[in-house]
Design a protein around this nucleic acid. Structure first.
Length: 505
RNA sequence: GGGUCGCUAGCUCAAUGGUAGAGCUGCGGACUUUUAAUCCGUAGGUUCGGGGUUCGAGCCCCCGGCGACCCA
């Protein structure tokens, strides 16, 4: 029989690692000695941050007369014979030193502190705010109490935690690595800024279905599940687009949604199976209007999240979001890079030859436009040094986009590239229900031929459009990628609890 | 999907095919001003899992798991 150290049972208690066994014993002994190991209702009077703010510049060895009750997690501990020091950290990262002196707490409290308190425990300390002889702002305790006994040791400080552990045990990562908390807080600032940016522009935040009976709005494989109540197959949404457009038909002329999408596809440094997307739609706008709003939203979010429009990352790369962002034409830039003219009329066979020459895998069902986009990704994207809007995409990869008003064979669509990553897309939306039906029928034919990413014919969406969909612009922006751009981290660092494979089979 | 690298004590890492070690953590002791304290002592291992080669495997081979990076 094997024992699992992470699933202790009474029988397995003796097999626990020594440090965990000892902490469990301390928990028992605390209770036995009359101290609650997980005390509720502690007489906390203020926060560590407030204490620091109230006493910013005390000279060394000063007594303030200010008596406080504070709580925090022990992240540093030093016991000398009759005087103990501990650094307590609050959730906001603020820290203060607690001092437990024989003269102030008496023999019993000093002994129990030394016996029971470990790194990682939450403790409560009440006493006077002072500075130590070394000038450290401290609370000289009259009393201490255990707030929560930690049964597992913290990783050793000053060593970087294994990347896998950081993701699997984010709670530990958040405790020991300030940057982890910083990323989480940056996400909050970004989303709040986006809401403010759009609300100020008279957009309404609405909620549309995540469980859908038909997936659409993007080309991607969905997660499939089953509704017991209705006894039908349902899909986790790959995009909210078709419902947001329905809302515009109904007269909600400026709408947005910031929430999770799900795509049952590969996971790598820039793709997560669940990811957060902003989509917004504005009646009577076109893709140029939407490009401007998108840039402004991005810039406002950067100011809110990182305090500026340029960011230097740990690896030395610099993100520069300043000014108006350049626009390049998709076909023109591919043509320039290849040294020959590529147009929407370039035959598929020739594009296949060009792709194969560059070692680009050609999917059997790939349409010509897809091949042009592959060539573009391969040749042009690596040359971008600034955020760039790539304009006017092939119609065969963009079934929901309006045809370009002057250029044949392309649609009014841009993709936004930031730091080499596709970070957003914007359309002049297709609103003609007759053309939309033709496009979706073509997609359905692709699906019938085995393209698992192709769209399906959504009759209710077409019915909505037949009621008169105003011309409009629409945008989707990946929030995780925005976080990546702002922080320089991989997508799994920007998502607090990313999907990970189970540790045991 | 392909390739490369990694997985060893609570954490971070060592270890020519030949007794699995170190630092920090922990435990015991000293110390009323410590800041990654110091000093003395000490404990701690299914080397990711399974199979194989070998007198002998953490190391070599095969299969599998998880992760990182690169490529497509």
């Amino acid at each position: 029989m094997t024992t699992d150290p992470d699933m202790p049972t009474a029988d397995a208690e003796d097999d626990l690692p020594e440090q965990m066994r000892i902490r469990r014993e301390k928990r028992e002994q605390l209770a036995a000695s009359g101290m609650e190991p997980y005390a509720i209702g502690l007489p906390i009077t203020t926060t560590i941050a407030a204490v620091r703010a109230a006493h910013p510049d005390l000279p060394v060895d000063t007594a303030t007369g200010d008596r406080v009750g504070i709580a925090g997690r022990v992240i540093f501990s030093r016991n000398t014979g009759k005087l103990c020091f501990a650094t307590l950290r609050a959730g906001d990262g603020s820290e203060i030193q607690a001092m437990i002196s024989l003269a102030n707490v008496g023999e019993g409290q000093l002994a129990s502190w030394k016996e029971f308190v470990d790194l990682g425990d939450h403790v409560f300390v009440s006493g006077e705010v002072i500075t130590s002889k070394r000038g450290e702002l401290s609370v000289m305790a009259d009393e201490w109490r255990m707030a929560a006994k930690a049964l597992r040791p913290l990783p050793v400080a000053h060593k970087s935690l294994n990347e896998e552990t950081r993701v699997r045990q984010r709670y530990v990562d958040l405790i020991v690595r300030p940057e982890a908390q910083q990323v989480a807080r940056t996400r909050v600032a970004v989303v709040a800024s986006i809401r403010q940016s759009l609300t100020r522009r008279s957009f309404l935040e609405i909620e549309t279905p995540m469980l859908q009976t038909m997936h659409g709005g993007a080309t991607a494989r969905p997660f499939v599940t089953h509704s017991n109540a209705f006894d039908i197959e349902v899909f986790l949404r790959i995009a909210p687009e078709l419902f947001l457009k329905r809302a515009v038909v109904g007269g909600l002329e400026r709408v947005f949604e910031v929430n999770r999408n799900f795509r049952n596809e590969g996971a790598d440094r820039t793709h997560s199976p669940e990811f957060t997307m902003l989509e917004f739609y504005q009646a009577y706008a076109d893709y140029q209007v939407m490009a401007t709003i998108t840039r402004e939203i991005y810039q406002e979010a950067a100011l809110a999240a990182v305090g500026g429009l340029t960011v230097e990352h740990h690896d030395g790369t610099v993100l520069d979001l300043t000014g108006v962002w350049p626009q390049v034409d998709l076909y023109e830039s591919v043509s320039a890079a290849l040294g020959e003219e590529i147009t929407p009329l370039t035959p598929r066979e020739h594009l296949v030859v060009l792709c194969e020459r560059d070692g680009i895998d050609v999917a059997p069902l790939a349409v010509p436009g897809k091949l042009v986009e592959e060539l573009f990704e391969h040749h042009v994207v690596p040359t971008f040094t600034r955020p760039t809007f790539v304009m006017d995409y092939p119609v065969d990869t963009s079934p929901l986009v309006r045809g370009h008003r002057t250029k044949p064979g392309v649609v009014e669509k841009w993709d936004l590239y930031i730091n080499g990553m596709e970070s957003g897309t914007g359309y002049s939306e297709l609103v003609d229900p007759v053309i939309q039906r033709e496009r979706l029928i073509e997609q359905a034919a692709l699906a019938d031929r085995g393209d698992a990413e192709a769209m399906h014919l959504d009759e209710d969406f077409l019915r909505a459009m037949e009621h008169g969909m105003p011309p409009m612009g629409g945008v989707g922006v990946g929030i995780d990628r925005m976080l990546m751009a702002f922080t320089g981290m991989g997508i799994r660092e920007t998502i607090l609890f990313p999907l990970v494979k189970p540790e045991r089979s």
